[in-house]
Design a protein around this nucleic acid. Sequence first.
DNA 1: TTGAAAGCGCTACCAG
DNA 2: CTGGTAGCGCTTTCAA
Lengths: 333, 333
Amino acid sequence: MNLADVARRAGVSTATVSRVMNNIGVVREETRLRVTRAAEELRYYPNFHARALAGGDSRMIGLIVSNLENPFFLDIFRSLEAAAHDADYEVLITNTGYRSERLHALVRLMIGRRLSGLAVVVSEMDEALLDELAHHELPIVVYDVGSTRRGLVHINVDYRAGMQRLVSHLVELGHRRLAFVGHHTTLGPLQDRKETFLEIVRQFSPAIEYRTATGADGFSGGREAVRAIFGEGFQPTAIVCVNDFMAAGAMRELRALNLRVPEDVSLTGFDDIELADIISPPLTTSHIPRDLIGRLIFESLTSTPQPREILLTPTFVPRGSTAAILQPSCVSS
Amino acid sequence: MNLADVARRAGVSTATVSRVMNNIGVVREETRLRVTRAAEELRYYPNFHARALAGGDSRMIGLIVSNLENPFFLDIFRSLEAAAHDADYEVLITNTGYRSERLHALVRLMIGRRLSGLAVVVSEMDEALLDELAHHELPIVVYDVGSTRRGLVHINVDYRAGMQRLVSHLVELGHRRLAFVGHHTTLGPLQDRKETFLEIVRQFSPAIEYRTATGADGFSGGREAVRAIFGEGFQPTAIVCVNDFMAAGAMRELRALNLRVPEDVSLTGFDDIELADIISPPLTTSHIPRDLIGRLIFESLTSTPQPREILLTPTFVPRGSTAAILQPSCVSS
DNA sequence: TTGAAAGCGCTACCAG
DNA sequence: CTGGTAGCGCTTTCAA
């Protein structure tokens, strides 16, 4: 069931069928009708591979993310997809699960597909792969990746600023025993959040005590990290989480430990995903503009020339999960 | 940068390069080495489209879902992907957003890709499309779709049973004023949940009062539906939600209305997504085995012959969001 | 063990 | 306005 079959049935050439199928060039109305009818009768579906092979442009944009379950990535996908559809592109989304070998395989697969553009929004990028990407003619944009490369568009977020705001918020509320809940992933700018936390907190040392713990990106990772912190006897009055997704798990575990948020422990996240405002209490966090990111990705991929590097600033979003520390004097009195 | 380039550089024919790239046939070790080296030096990436065109099988499975944001669908994807990867398949996931025209476009796109199999896990399927799907040689499995078709594998869940369990649970707890929060989507078996709710509740009529409301699948849809119910002056003591995702939003709105769960209002969901046990209080729900579904999809798509229709039964999962009704006498005394 | 060449289904260009 | 046809890059016989 191919172009030739349709052509034969309609009594025209394959060239004409191609014109009709693509709404390209001029075709007499009657001929067009005959062709469309033949195509329908034969239940003809154009072969995408042949089309891409012959034509060149696949009008597809690839998106590689670390963790589809984390709504943060999904939000970027949605925004990118919306922009893409408006311009008659499709977007192909894939997921590495933070596994480096998957990332390599997916990059290979994506490039093999001859896409119109590729967006890599992952935390596990390594320098070698970055070099390799930079060597391609295919337009590529990377999010949240350390060192810049010519030929690549970089979109980054100023995590330091966001983190700083969050931690000073807690310090101002009187918190002196803090904990940080991070990713297992130790690569790339995700570490920025942790390192910024450590930097600030150490400035106040030894007035401020702190601990860190890690878990997989997800609810259960957040829970485990919190369990680890309290399991070792440390009793923070505030916990800073690397993102909202893990913070939701952390909050759940605090409840399991019979600790109230924010009365006993304050909690912060990062990203400002929709869930942050659904859980109870709603999460104090730092907003990253995913909508904007998705749109910027699309623009960078399709229009040229583009800026080499884009830096976005997160916004502080105070909600109910943080509160001033209850002075021991108040409690014991 | 293609096969011919590599062949030239390695001083062999394209046929040999092809053999090396696919680990197929016999090639002298020395030749193989020369070819792989040439491919690396040239940063050669095989063109997927050409390969699919020439070879036939793309070793790709397509998955079309209604709403990627709903973790229910994502869980199926993960499970399907795991099974697929084990057998060296990739899975292509796409999202309709409950829009029927997107579904049609995506089916077209998927079939045009000459996939090895297609899974359609949507609620907005219509009979015409179902007929069309049934006419393809491509293996297809559909989830949660009403009338069966020969040539298609159907995977269904006994929603009636799940719903019945949930509602009788509430009735046994003494609830007599119930509300149902459903989808905008009125198509297909999602209605099963609502209709089953209505059936049961009407059996008790007029002892039991009820109302229904709808919203989009998501947190905000759940919130709006709850707002609508109370906005009209109806004061249910229990709310049954079509799924957990919306139930999480519903719970959030109840809190905004200063109603406690479960003390003032009991709440149930459906699906048993991970989030159901993260929100506070954790959600009483009905478990649908997504892991099993993903695996069944893969098996149905790749092995043959398969059963025509598979029916799964959900499991009742009682948690903290439901409780016995507080008798007015108790409250006022 | 390797090479030559015939497609796979479609687009795009050049004629008519 | 329509047809003929040369590729696109790869796999796969069939010979050598």
